[in-house]
């Protein structure tokens, strides 16, 4: 499939010498939800801002729909909508006028029907004549989405769309994003809430220190790097793991009352049967069993730690 956004060998350094992006290569495909994850200062917003034209690119090349974002900026920018991280709005304007302004700015003829449909879909219709300064933070976030969608873009960048938004509104936002994807819009999402990416993304990119360290289909990533844990609730707490069970690399938890066995989900043989046999032979009895699976958050933390640690060890195991 032809990428709708292609980033090739992109680097960006600031005047103070800080290198925000290092040789980024990335393809985003039409109709997908791509989540860009990374810790603070990793380069997520710089990358988005370069694609959107807010930050001057350094070296490298970016194309949108096959067009260069610098040379053919009119074509590429008209295809893109951006919801920024900050709640930057024209506070003295009404919802209707600011959304209409955005449509005109992006070169589209006024369309009251489209603006009405948009405001209704974002539950903003009742607020259309309200000044933005009178709206709550969540409503302002919706206004920013409406502004970004006013010119019917094919690509939508959402930079931390649910930052500072309550749980209920966050779920509303997720629904809005899914609906947009259903309508064919390609969505690139940055977020600190890994749960958000886990819920919505088709593919995940992890960026750290200005470098893309992993790009993978979400389920594949979770399958590959995910770990499962078998937790045995013991009848009698153990002081230490018996020597006969050392090969299983078991851990003791809850002051010896639980025995934790971590195994790879992709492995052909998980070793569970052998472990249970050995436990029986060692006379260790248990009264309950739990299993836990790594969340995307744990995988993400593991990837970032792995990149930071000199020996490259990963730590993507599920939390207890």
């Amino acid at each position: 499939m032809q990428a709708i956004i292609r980033i090739e060998n992109l680097s960006k350094s600031y005047a103070d010498g800080f290198q925000a992006l290092k040789n980024i290569d990335l393809d985003v495909f039409p109709g997908e939800i791509f989540a860009l994850l990374g810790p603070n200062g990793a380069g997520k917003t710089t990358l988005i801002n370069i694609v959107c034209g807010i930050v001057n690119p350094g070296s490298g090349r970016i194309t949108v729909d096959g067009h260069d974002v610098v040379r053919d900026f009119r074509h590429t920018r008209s295809m893109i909508g951006l919801v920024p991280q900050e709640l930057s709005t024209d506070m003295f304007e009404t919802v209707w006028s600011t959304v209409s302004f955005s449509r005109g700015l992006f070169g589209y003829r006024a369309s009251p029907q489209h603006i009405e449909r948009l405001l209704r879909s974002l539950s903003l219709w009742d607020k259309k004549d309200n000044k933005i300064m009178t709206l709550s933070g969540g409503m302002k976030r919706r206004v920013l989405i409406a502004k970004a969608l006013a010119h019917e873009p094919r690509i939508l960048f959402l930079d931390e769309p649910t930052a500072g938004v309550d749980v209920e509104l966050r779920k509303d936002m997720w629904k809005i994003v899914r609906d947009l994807r259903e309508s064919g819009v390609t969505i690139i999402l940055t977020t600190h809430y890994i749960e958000e990416a886990e819920q919505m993304a088709d593919r995940v990119g992890v960026i750290n220190h200005g470098e893309i360290i992993r790009v993978q289909e979400k389920h594949e990533l979770m399958r590959e790097l995910g770990r499962k844990q078998l937790v045995l609730h013991l009848h009698e707490p153990l002081a230490r793991v018996p020597a006969s069970l050392e090969s299983f690399e078991l851990e003791l938890a809850a002051s010896g009352a639980r025995l934790v066995y971590t195994y790879e989900t992709r492995a052909a043989r998980t070793g569970i049967t052998a472990l249970l046999t050995e436990l029986s032979e060692a006379g260790i009895r248990f009264h309950d069993v739990d299993t836990n699976e790594s969340s995307l958050e744990e995988i993400f933390v593991g990837l970032v730690r792995q990149e930071a640690s000199p020996d490259g060890r990963t730590g993507a195991g599920p939390t207890q």
Partner: peptide, 17 residues
């Protein structure tokens, strides 16, 4: 004013010269 409020991002990301 847009520089002060941060809304300048919209102008910079619009297809305008």
């Amino acid at each position: 004013m847009p520089r002060f409020t941060g809304t300048i991002f919209e102008l910079l990301s619009a297809p305008v010269s």
